[in-house]
């Protein structure tokens, strides 16, 4: 009886804290979404309405009619996908080398990789611009892929460590006895076993690229090549604050990652966790 009561109290406490947590994270999104379907006068009314009183899609119409939003979406997706692929390749190769082969100096190399985060991207902005300009990559989506991989890969290497450490060496040995070479073992045996981890870093790289703003704002010149964050910053506008338009833009920018995360979000979280459990 008492244990039941304690159990009840405990689970009540758990649900309450989960609720608070989700409100902290999710309520602001509810607020922008509902704002985006309110009429302009209701948006800036002095008494905010929790549930929209006026339903309108005018801000979305306005947004889609007057800006190249679908184009920004496409650009962001292309850049994020390429960043993801390249990061996955570079990071898994490096992680395999560092965590499986443990050659002399591997830990040192790992530290070097992490320490690249010490250099402010602000510091790199000007020289990077000059460098990318020399190779004709200003206003190219590739420029952003290149820098985004640099931001994503070091941490991705670390995220993979638990997975690579978890694969039993016996498996590789058995395969090696069968006459398979190192590379074959890596590709056929080890990498597939670390698939959840690779899914995690893929998502991580995608998100890192998806959210990047500063370099995209400087390295991209033409409207046709803008990413979502830069396109959105453009409609924030300096002259007028059209909250309806902005909230619609914010909602539409959130939506694709919402869908993506709805589909693969579990892989990200479970992937990280799976590596840890094994």
């Amino acid at each position: 009886m008492t244990t039941d009561l304690a159990g009840l109290r405990r689970s009540l406490g758990v649900y309450l804290s989960v609720a608070v947590l989700l409100i902290v994270v999710i309520a602001p999104f509810y607020w922008i979404f509902t704002g985006s379907i309110k009429a302009p006068q209701e948006i800036i009314a002095q008494v905010p309405t929790l549930i929209p009183q006026s339903l309108t899609l005018e801000h979305y119409d306005h947004l889609l009619a007057s800006s190249a939003f679908p184009r920004y979406l496409l650009n962001s997706t292309i850049i994020a996908a390429l960043t993801m692929v390249i990061t996955v390749v570079l990071a898994s190769l490096a992680a395999y080398g560092i965590y499986r082969l443990r050659f002399p100096g591997s830990q040192f190399l790992f530290k070097i990789i992490l320490v690249t985060y010490a250099f402010p991207s602000i510091l790199l902005l000007v020289p990077l611009y000059g460098m990318l300009s020399q190779v004709g990559l200003i206003d190219s989506l590739w420029a952003l892929v290149i820098v985004n991989v640099t931001f994503a890969a070091p941490f991705a290497v670390w995220m993979l460590q638990a997975f690579f450490r978890a694969v039993p060496y016996e498996l590789e040995e058995a395969a090696a006895l069968d006459g398979a070479g190192r590379l074959r073992v890596m590709l056929r045996i080890t990498l597939p076993l670390t698939a959840p981890g690779i899914a995690s870093i893929a998502i991580y790289a995608f998100i890192t690229s998806w959210t990047e703003y500063m370099l995209a704002s400087v390295l991209i010149i033409s409207d046709a090549n803008r990413t979502l964050p830069v396109g959105l910053a453009g409609i924030i506008g300096q002259y007028q604050v059209d909250w309806g338009l902005l909230l619609a833009g914010a909602t539409l920018t959130t939506l694709p990652v919402l869908i993506l995360f709805g589909l693969v979000g579990r892989n990200f979280v479970d992937g990280l966790t799976a590596g840890a459990i094994k």
Partner: peptide
């Protein structure tokens, strides 16, 4: 036309001129 933002143009325009863009 390529619309730009006043907030970024002070960085972007001189850099673009210098780089030939």
């Amino acid at each position: 036309q390529e619309p730009q933002n006043w907030g970024e143009i002070y960085t972007k325009a001189p850099a673009a001129v210098a780089a030939g863009n």
